[in-house]
Nucleic acid binder design. Structure first.
Lengths: 301, 301
DNA sequence: TATAATTTTATACTCGTAGTCCAAAAAGAA
DNA sequence: TTCTTTTTGGACTACGAGTATAAAATTATA
């Protein structure tokens, strides 16, 4: 995204924070960011799209900062989790994200609603996965419910604390209180063995970026062919290992490390055998396709 | 409100349910309800005001039905509470109240926002008072927090159940699940002795409809005068009792029963004494004013 | 540097909707 | 009947989103 467009984005965001989305007219944005109408519609196809862009940017920043807090920390440390939540709330407040998001939710625009929904669900999924870190795989069955309830209570606790204490609301206190409830609820609900929504549902809400069965099949087939076409040389073992590693990294890792896979591919030597060469080319193409798809998904959803 | 105006209200509500508020134009409403523009603006000063009227009506109906469920039942019976919640959710769904309310929340219109806020808080207060019925005065300190959290979890549990199970969501199941969490949380939170927002805050959010100190003073003064001007007859005692009853009912009861007070007033006989008569007239006026004020408050807020 | 391609500007224009105004018609009441 | 109130319907205003476009400015290229 070019610098000028980003400048417009920032200026518009400022206006949205000050006046709200609806109350900000295109004209306001043009004047405030010093561009012409033509340019505006060159950058964004509509006012709604601009709002989505603003939200996307804020969310991306927020997710990055929040995930950075985990670096070098134990994922099961609840204090780290609390820090992450506090950060989110503070950024939300700063960027008026909540209000903007809510304007997304209740417009007639399909795209906006869609985007909002996806954002919510991504948030829930993040909570769910963090809860697995915090409370253990064995509680898994109940953790989607807990994520949903945590979200709801946190939002309302914060909202009404704001109402009660105005701008003096102590975010840390609200988070602490809500997290205290959470840990009890997690125990209680798994004790009672009650489930409302099965965690697998997440998959249907937000199809995973993991490759589908056809990808798995093709990958496995290619790797097997390559292994078979290896000559009985001393290279055989190392090449087999490399191939196995690539397959594993692609299938079993949550976020396959691209640089690793590509350097591993480079280590697969040329053998002169046409079958080997052909399979190798196909494997390369398959992997490239895979990463293209991943990138697309990241951008669109 | 005249019949024709109500007809417009109903028709508009139907359109709002079908297409949403924003997407329904004034023109749509005019055609669908068969009135002219002039008449419309004669009834409602704006589209927003119409929406508020629609919501007000729905909320009033809902509150009435919900409170009727308590008649002849024990307020501490949690099954009755569950029935009340289920009823609310079903009516919400039928009338698309949630969506309409949310359109209220995120408009630029001050009045709409105000109305929405008040509705939310009234709901929380109702929950809070029901929780006192259910869990006892001794838990009071924590019950506002619990009301807020209950609201949040219920809303989100329902929302995501709808997402997961489409239209097949079993409202009863969601309510049961959420109430089960509630009773545990109430115990847990009072055990831990943690409070986020003090229940007194409710008073500042939604000033009570109880009469102010000046009303109390005037009432007490009039009653005392009346008692004093009573002649020493055998009627004296019963008349004094009647007067005391009226004063108590007005001051100490949460919702003074109008019919009771009025029939009691009627039982206060005419004595011929001008001071007595004068005071009696003033008392009548005071009581009438009181009920007028109550009615006004019910309508406006 | 000259020329071609592109991006940007400024402005006029369309379109749709909320809300106002008002004179004439219709309906009700005296 | 006559006076009053309500209703009608259409013209009109205001405003904001989005389109169209020709001219100007900028950037790339030969």
């Amino acid at each position: 995204m070019n610098e000028r467009k980003q400048h417009v984005l920032r200026k518009a965001h400022q206006l949205f924070i000050e006046k709200g989305f609806q109350a900000t007219s295109i004209q306001d944005i043009l004047e405030y960011s010093g561009i012409s109408k033509g340019t505006f519609y060159n950058y964004f196809s509509s006012k709604n799209e601009l709002l989505i862009a603003v939200c996307k940017k804020s969310v991306a920043d927020l997710e990055k900062m929040r995930d950075d807090l985990l670096i070098g920390q134990s994922p099961s440390d609840i204090e780290v989790f609390i820090k992450q939540i506090e950060l989110q709330l503070k950024l939300n407040r700063k960027n008026n994200l909540i209000t903007l998001f809510e304007e997304l939710m209740f417009s007639d625009d399909k795209d906006m609603k869609q985007f909002f929904k996806k954002g919510q669900i991504k948030n829930i999924r993040w909570l769910y996965q963090r809860f697995i870190d915090l409370f253990g795989e064995e509680k898994k069955l109940f953790l989607l419910d807990c994520a949903i309830m945590f979200m709801g209570t946190l939002r309302d606790n914060l909202r009404y604390s704001n109402l009660a204490y105005q701008s003096n609301t102590n975010i840390a206190e609200v988070v602490r209180y809500t997290v205290n409830r959470l840990v009890k609820i997690v125990d209680e609900v798994s004790e009672a063995n009650e489930q409302l929504i099965a965690p697998e549902t997440l998959e249907t809400w937000l199809p995973s970026k993991k490759p589908g069965p056809s990808f798995k099949k093709e990958l496995h087939h290619l790797v097997a062919s390559l292994k078979n076409s290896l000559p009985g040389t001393d290279q055989q073992e190392s090449q087999t290992e490399l191939l196995s590693f690539i397959e594993e990294e692609l299938l079993d890792s949550k976020n396959p490390r691209r640089f690793l896979i590509e350097s591993t591919m480079a280590a697969l030597t040329s053998l002169g055998d046409p079958i080997w060469e052909n399979n190798l080319r196909q494997l390369k193409r398959l992997i490239a396709d895979y990463f293209i798809k991943i990138e697309e998904m990241k951008e669109n959803g």
